[in-house]
Design a protein around this nucleic acid. Structure first.
Lengths: 348, 348
DNA sequence: GCTTAGCACTCTAGTGCGTTGAGTGCCAAT
DNA sequence: ATTGGCACTCAACGCACTAGAGTGCTAAGC
């Protein structure tokens, strides 16, 4: 896959075709492009360029006597080289500012608001991916005895994301022991990430002190059990999934069904997003670049956000390949920047 | 709306038409019915009866030269008078038994398993509606101070359904006060329903004792605040929503979108279900009998379940009007009976 | 008096066919 | 290098025609 180099005219024509196609959804013909182009080029000249672009694999025709349509490769070129991202429109900024100011700097609330905002503004699917759970920072933990050998664990993260989980233990512990164990864990590990806590517990076990100190032993057992049960690595929140029903590219029911099933299987979705977001810094991923059949003609726009402690997640949108990338990217960028600022501002 | 009385032959013909239509989705003609009918009736005779049934509003023709299709009224008659509900097939029973035995008698786990089971078996949408929150019975409550005037409330119900909620208070309380207040509430109200607790708190406030006793005062304030924030009355869990994408009656994208939006707005859905399930004991509700446009050509099969304390909820399925009612009703009935038995069996 | 064979009638779904128009590719002229 | 001109292609549309399923009605039969 060699680097493609285009002269200015080809670039302009490619841009016109892609933005035209994004706008109308119809194949774009040489006449249309010729009329839009600044220098008064004739349709015939445009056709020559189009033929070249087609040879390069950036365009195709649905059938011989139709206009041109961008290929995935064409979109990729467009996104990498031709896309100019500005600021969102003033009224969009105003809406974003007011929506976000209302949630304050709390991740737990933003988890609903941000995807909804993205979905509303773009009419695509908005999403937010939390930082990995192993980066969560312990603020509080509490154990409650429900009945014999059955314990409720409540975990509160520094960003006030609360999770609870019921554990079935081998041994019965009374509430006093549980409370002491919780206090011990908070004293020892508050401010540490789950990953660090996991390591710390392993160390304690190895030191064998736990064997003789029942408080320590309980704390270690409970902590370990909880962390082991904590299987999901990241959480993802979606909003506006029904928007995609209107995309003409999903008139095929089976494709749509597969897509919705993907939306529902959160853990699979998380894996998918994780795989395409983490490695590169790239912000737009095309469906063809993910090896999942369900995301066939979709594209992903993503931007990272960052918490005080350096843990980071993603927000973005999921829409048809045929989407207004400039608008999408500018909105996602703007929101993620603003959101990061809010999150890293010292809490009251 | 007078009572409709049909002779045996008309009933049989109506039944054949409806079950034929349910099976194939195509209008059913007189020839087809004549062949299926036991006594060797001719198509012409069948046509006479069909004309009568159409006059009664139980059937229609999509167009002049097509067979007959049941109307909503026809379905209603069929369900009320002609439906014979047996036991589910042996292999279905086996699947149900094994799935449910795994969850034991806990509502919290069943909330996922039961709808999934229903969806799998019927290929429609399975649902479970919890009992009203005001019927929940207090087992544990815990208050945790997150920071100044910010309190996490964890509520555990007798069925081990856990809910948490963050409260912003006017006054700051330290953790010791909070723990005492929680212990007081548990001592005073464990085993009582939220409704009873609400009443109890109101009484305490009225008695004015709270004014002088700070423990009591804190408990009352916290309890009241929590109960006030507890806005949702019931919860509903759905599974298999994507199944409906295959119904040919939803090839219209807008209808489907509206339906999916209804699925997502849980509280609206709860209201809807509540409205059509509570008053009557009827177990099948047709879309036309609910005044919600989103549920146009859908039907609802429901069966109640009961907890030890008498609180009750519903399980059931949501599918196209054109569904195999006998199978659906028998499955829903069987599961709800089995499920009630499990729930009311004394906990270990 | 109910049942039914027969028949004319209706309407959809499918097929074949010619027309239209958008768009292309190529070539020769500028 | 650009462009006007021209032949060609192909989807989309409208139209007429046919096949077939099904009906309603009437008159004959048990």
């Amino acid at each position: 896959m060699t680097e493609i180099v285009l002269d200015v005219r080809s670039q302009e024509i490619l841009r016109k075709i892609i933005s035209g196609y994004i706008l109308t959804g119809e194949p774009v013909g040489s006449r249309t492009v010729a009329k839009l182009t600044r220098e008064g080029l004739s349709p015939a000249s445009v056709r020559n360029v189009m033929a070249d672009l087609e040879e390069l694999g950036l365009l195709t025709q649905p059938h011989t006597s139709a206009g041109r349509v961008p290929t995935e490769r064409g979109y990729r070129y467009y996104i990498d080289w031709l896309l100019k991202v500005g600021q969102p429109a003033a009224r969009d900024r105003a809406l974003i500012d007011s929506s976000l100011s209302r949630v304050g700097g709390e991740l737990s609330e933003a988890m609903e608001v941000v995807p909804r905002l993205l979905a509303r503004l773009t009419r695509h699917v908005g999403y937010l991916v939390t930082p990995p759970v192993s980066d969560a920072v312990l603020k509080h933990i509490e154990f409650m005895r429900l009945h014999t050998r059955r314990i409720l664990v409540v975990f509160v993260d520094r960003d006030e994301v609360v999770t609870h989980r019921i554990l079935d233990m081998e041994e019965d512990l009374d509430q006093a022991d549980l409370s002491r164990a919780a206090r011990y864990l908070v004293d020892a590990f508050a401010g540490k990430t789950l990953q660090e806590i996991r390591d710390g517990l392993v160390r304690l076990m190895a030191e064998e002190k736990a064997r003789f100190d029942s408080l320590l032993s309980n704390a270690v057992t409970l902590g370990t059990r909880y962390l082991d049960a904590e299987s999901e690595e990241r959480r993802v929140v979606l909003d506006g999934t029904t928007n995609i029903m209107h995309y003409p590219e999903f008139s095929d029911v089976d494709t749509m069904k597969r897509l919705f099933e993907t939306f529902e299987e959160k853990h699979r979705l998380v894996n998918l997003l994780d795989r395409c977001l983490d490695p590169s810094g790239s912000r737009v991923v095309l469906g063809s670049e993910i090896d999942d059949p369900a995301l066939g003609s979709m594209a992903l726009v993503a931007s990272p956000y960052r918490l005080v402690d350096g843990a980071s997640g993603w927000i973005g949108i999921l829409g048809p390949t045929r989407m207004e990338y400039d608008r999408a990217v500018s909105l996602v960028d703007y929101i993620s920047r603003l959101f990061s600022t809010l999150l890293t501002r010292p809490n009251p």
